[in-house]
Amino acid sequence: MQQKNPLLKGSLITIILKLLSENDKMYGYEITRIVQELSQGSLKLTEGALYPSLHKLEADGLLEVSIENIGNRSRKYYSLTKKGKKESVEKLKELNQFFTQMQQVLNLKLSV
């Protein structure tokens, strides 16, 4: 399943917030790689979607950045702000509620 899937696209922000809530700090490619590993290769985030989402979350004050030197280059790490931590909980709640509602709707339709 590629990132073009609208379901994944709609959940990208929640995925980023959830991953960052479980890790102190992460960089862009690390997020892509972990999503791929966790989904056993079935979900692939494109760079064209990931970075604009990270930059949006940063602009919204949900993420903060730090730059570290890694060998012969610099790396930009993202971590959750206080506001981001609250938002990650909210987003997960919303997603769970959505799954439950979808299940109810689909089960109802199937049983009709």
């Binding site: 494109t46 760079e47 064209g48 970075y51 604009p52 930059h55 949006k56 940063e58 602009a59």
Partner: peptide, 19 residues
Amino acid sequence: KDFGIFGFSKIVHEKSEQL
């Protein structure tokens, strides 16, 4: 190639907007 047909331009544009 993985950055798609627009290359880095989408990232630059979105970053500028967000900033």
